[in-house]
Amino acid sequence: MQPIVPIHYFLIVAAALFSIGLAVMITKRNAIAVLIGVELILNAVNLNLVAFSQYDPLRLEGQLFALFVMVVAAAESAVALAIILKVYRHYQTTDLDKISSMKK
């Protein structure tokens, strides 16, 4: 018996979101926009995990993994935004191309 919506379709949506997240990370120069790309990628992975969770005998392991991904994403974005605040105070900009003093 087939599921109502085949799992391929969810995987393709997740793949599209992942690619969009990568494109966001490449195009944007603002550090916050790059973080937005990271969040999109994390959500694409979450969708994959929940979709594959249907193959589990308990059907829960993938969902729990997605829950932990959310936990880590929350902690990560809090620390990253604090770092961006600090960087802005030091350089007066969040443009990642201009924060290049380590290159010299």
Binding site: L47, V50, S53, Q63, A66
Partner: peptide
């Protein structure tokens, strides 16, 4: 999408 995949709490 999560609701469609039977993950209501998530």
């Amino acid at each position: 999408h999560y609701v469609l995949l039977n993950a209501q709490f998530l």
